[in-house]
Nucleic acid binder design. Sequence first.
DNA 1: ATGGTTGTTGGACAA
Length: 257
Amino acid sequence: MKIATWNVNSVKARLPNVTGWLAAARPDVLLLQEIKCETAAFPAAAFADLGYNAAVLGQKSYNGVAILSTAPIEDLREGLPGDPDDPQARYIEATVRGVRLASIYLPNGNPVGTEKYPYKLRWMERLRAHAQSLLNLAVPVVLGGDYNVIPEPRDVYAPQQWAEDALFRIETRRAFRTIVNLGYTDAFRAVNPDQQRAFTFWDYQAGAWPRDLGLRIDHFLLSPQAADRLQDCRIDRAPRGEEKASDHTPVILDLLD
DNA sequence: ATGGTTGTTGGACAA
């Protein structure tokens, strides 16, 4: 089972990039983040033409997540539990072929010192609590998406420059580790324990892409039942180099069937 | 160098 995650930074602006990649890569599932459109405006027909079903949690202008799947999408959950008043569309979860899948767009949290950073940390605590409850299901769980977390110094081109950034502060890294330490596996690092400069995001500014000044912030976390089936996890850098690219590139996970 | 870029939206805000 081939599962991919991609922060597309507007599904409408990126439609030719995404449909072209899907047609070539043909994952069974694609988790999308930052679709930046309301649910009703999601271009579902373009994906249906390629054989994909869609489950969408959208929002006007910002955020928005979706799940595309060639197989039926079952038992949909829209939104992360723990705050029914949270208006931001950042979490959608469903079952595909017996695997519980989430598409996650974790808050950025910058600038630190505004309400954005405590919102990020509260959101991570909600994710921790829900990730624990998912482990209790004792089924394969795949939590994929844009975590806006740089787990380790080697996951950023210049760690000293990022020390006080919301993506790399100690509290952020600790909150991420706390989720992993519940019993989840960072699929990319499990498969590529020594790979350097393994980035998934390059800023649009200052020539970050041609200079390879990137971050690894898009992740797959696997429950033990999913980790037992881990076959491969890799970053496809090619889409970042195309015309009108997203600032993120896809990460691909292969689970044994 | 208080910069630089992209998307949504039609002036900031978010990233």
